[in-house]
Amino acid sequence: MNKSDQDIITEYLSGNEIAFNELIQRYMTSVYTFTYGLTHSVQDAEDITQDTFVKAWKNIKKYDKKYTFKTWVLTIARNTTYDFFRKKKNIPFSAFDNTDGDNVLTAQLADEQPLALEISVLAEDKDILDTAIEQLPPVYKEVISLRYGQDLTFEEMSVVVKRPLNTVKSQVRRGLIALKEVLRAPK
């Protein structure tokens, strides 16, 4: 039977040095997928993934049980990616900090699943969808990656990206709309 993340962390903190490796195996693909979605560079995504797990290992004693480990490690991955972009200075930091404001009406947004399905229909293949996503602003790429790449709930996403819940919902919907527009645009 698979151990829970909590059990593995407890085991690691009790002295089992290799227990942490199981967490790496579980979440390496998630972290890599997320960072690749933002950087679109294999080398950069690998470097950031390594840095993320090193930071997670260093700070494992500070891990707060009220969040899932996945949420926590993706938060580290996000912050590490931002630091990486700041050092490279090729993407303005403000692009990630665009909160779009708090809009109470967006709390009433309809389920975004029909939009996601529509996009799957519009995109003829994976490469076309990949190219379209690449054209989105970083803030939309980030939330779409977390929602559909990592299967996070809106609440978990709100924790990772440190933005209000309604803002995150709004950004996912706007991101999907923007993606649909890109796919519909004449080639």
Binding site: M28, T29, Y32, T33, Y36, G37, A45, E46, T49, A116, I119, S120, V121, A123, D125, K126, L129, D130, I133, I144, S145, Y148, G149, D151
Partner: peptide, 12 residues
């Protein structure tokens, strides 16, 4: 056809 989740999954 690929779902959005399929597209966003990348194998390291």
């Amino acid at each position: 056809k690929h779902t959005l989740s399929d597209n966003l999954s990348v194998t390291p």
